[in-house]
Amino acid sequence: MWTIFTNNFGMFMEGLGYTLGASLLSLFFSLIIGTIFALLQINPSRTARIFGRIYVEFFRNVPLLVITMFFYVVIPRLGIPLSGFAAGSIGLTLYTSAFIAETVRAGIQSVDPGQMEAARSNGMTYVQAMRYIILPQAIKITVPPLGNQFINLVKNSSVLAFVAGFDLMYQGNLIASTTFETTTTYAIVGILYLIITLPMSYGMTYLDHRWSGRNTREEA
């Protein structure tokens, strides 16, 4: 096992790098897009809510691989060239953002409605109430389930292997098919994924324990 790892060290590390890169990019953008669609879904405007709902239901219910293939195969035909890495990262972002939208929406809706009423009665606009009162409380409730989404995101990044995205899974496939040491290679790939996801998992448990049931102090 060790020789397979050391002989192909460069490929494994390149794969790890692409996996981390795609994950971080998708994490960043899916968090922004997801929050926007969460806010749309609870917006007072009916049109905004319907639009938000359609987006979420679409990307949540279409397989990640289908979305990714669309960007890898269909979009380039329209004259916009996308690398496997780019197509994979876009697919991951859109897919994950739908789940994040649901998580953030649930977090916002679990904040006592009295908080919004108090803020509005206090003269704040809807946006001010969201920004200063509702979202800060929602974020704390949302952190543990968001952690799960991020772990899923890292694992789902293996979709890049299907579109030549140079990620860990892609490199693993290459190494397995050239060395024929399939068991060992995929075991190593699995361990490398665990090295990313396990610390995330423990980090989330830690934050959850620290925040559960009480509000920490923060500045206005």
């Binding site: 006592d112 908080q115 108090a118 206090n122 704040m124 009162i133 509000n215």
Partner: peptide, 27 residues
Amino acid sequence: VGMVFQHFNLYANKSVLDNITLGPRLV
């Protein structure tokens, strides 16, 4: 027009002082 609620509805993420000053500062 101010409002006082049955369940108080103080801002759970803000200190007592910030609860009182937030409206005057923002609005």
